[in-house]
């Protein structure tokens, strides 16, 4: 009788530990899934859209002739363009408030300037 009770207690304790471990594994899984989705969203969303805009503008600058202007709407199909700047032969596009750190190199032997207006950016090649 005594042995049976001890066995039952042991099993109860083991079941408790197993439950706790299971709950912890599930919670850890949820944390990882949340971070994975957040990172995937960051990778596939804003970063790629920023890259698309930077490379499109860089190609336009590469091929532009003096006297050409082109406009980039702030309310863009890729998001809200918050900034466009040129630095060290690279173009940097800020999207939805996130600044660009890598930028993309362009090549031109003309003078390129960016002008900001209320609802758009104007890239002027002279």
């Amino acid at each position: 009788m005594k042995l049976g009770r001890e066995f039952q207690l042991k099993m109860k304790k083991k079941a408790g530990i197993l439950n706790q471990v299971l709950i912890q594994i599930i919670l850890i899984g949820i944390i990882f899934a949340l971070f994975l989705f957040a990172t995937a969203d960051k990778i596939n969303g804003k970063g790629v859209k920023q890259q698309v805009l930077e490379k499109e503008i860089a190609l336009l600058i590469d091929v532009a002739e003096p006297g050409m202007n082109f406009e980039v709407s702030k309310l863009n199909v890729n998001g809200i363009v918050t900034s466009i700047r040129l630095s060290e032969e690279k173009i940097f596009v800020g999207l939805d408030g996130a600044a660009s750190f890598r930028g993309y190199p362009y090549f031109t032997h003309y003078d390129v300037k960016i002008f900001e207006e209320a609802d758009k950016f104007i890239v002027r090649v002279r």
Binding site: L36, T39, I43, N44, G47, Q51, K55
Partner: peptide, 14 residues
């Protein structure tokens, strides 16, 4: 995951 988001990025080749 923060580090992986820095080092992994989809590249559009132009």
């Amino acid at each position: 995951l923060g580090l992986s988001s820095i080092f992994y990025a989809y590249t559009i080749d132009i």
